[in-house]
């Protein structure tokens, strides 16, 4: 803060005190400007009406084994897949060292509901919706940049870094699930 001009004033009784005042004034100014700017930025965050749509219920009885549906939760598509035993076995047979983001299949489903795979339907690369039952691993293939997921929704190939995300959900009964 000590500029040439105020150092030149050798008659100033205490230059350190003056520097302190400059710094203190600037600091208060920054806090003030920050306080004014924050609401102008914060208005861009999700508003109350968006936040209000936080949880939904879904009836699973309509989804046959081997079928999957895409439902909308908080504006985001969610896959609900009723997996066949073959798909579950395939997913569980994969050794962990072949996975880019190692996670067991058991950790991605609810115990006792192993056939139900519920995932946010957005590729973890850049958020496109992967296409089901395609790709080399029989799971999902993202049309945007070619990421491939297996029957557990785990990333196997392509630019995506993570497995498909599991949203918070719980089973209210055997056929009713609450997401969010």
């Amino acid at each position: 803060m000590a500029t040439e001009s105020n150092l030149a004033h050798s008659d100033t009784p205490d230059p350190g005190k003056r520097d302190f005042l400059y710094v203190a004034t600037a600091a208060v100014g920054v806090v003030g400007v920050g306080g004014l700017v924050w609401p102008l930025i914060n208005q861009m965050n999700p508003d109350a009406s968006v936040l209000a749509l936080s949880s939904i219920e879904f009836d699973l009885s309509k989804v046959e084994p081997g079928a999957s549906v895409t439902i909308k939760w908080r504006g985001t598509p969610v896959f609900v897949r009723n997996r066949t035993q073959k798909e579950i076995d395939e997913a569980r047979a994969v050794p962990m060292d072949q996975l880019k983001d190692p996670e067991t299949d058991q950790a991605r489903v609810m115990k006792g509901h192993d056939n139900w795979l519920i995932m946010i339907a957005l590729c973890t690369h850049l958020g496109c919706i992967p296409v089901g039952e395609s790709g080399e691993f029989g799971g999902w293939l993202c049309p945007c940049h070619g990421s491939q997921y297996d029957t557990s929704g785990r990333i196997r190939k392509g630019p995506a870094p993570k497995n498909l995300v599991i949203p918070p959900y719980k089973f209210i009964s055997d056929t009713l699930v609450q997401i969010g």
Partner: peptide, 13 residues
């Protein structure tokens, strides 16, 4: 991401 989109997904905001 949420700040830019104004929601959990791209939408009207």
């Amino acid at each position: 991401l949420q700040l830019l989109r104004g929601g959990f997904a791209v939408d009207n905001p």
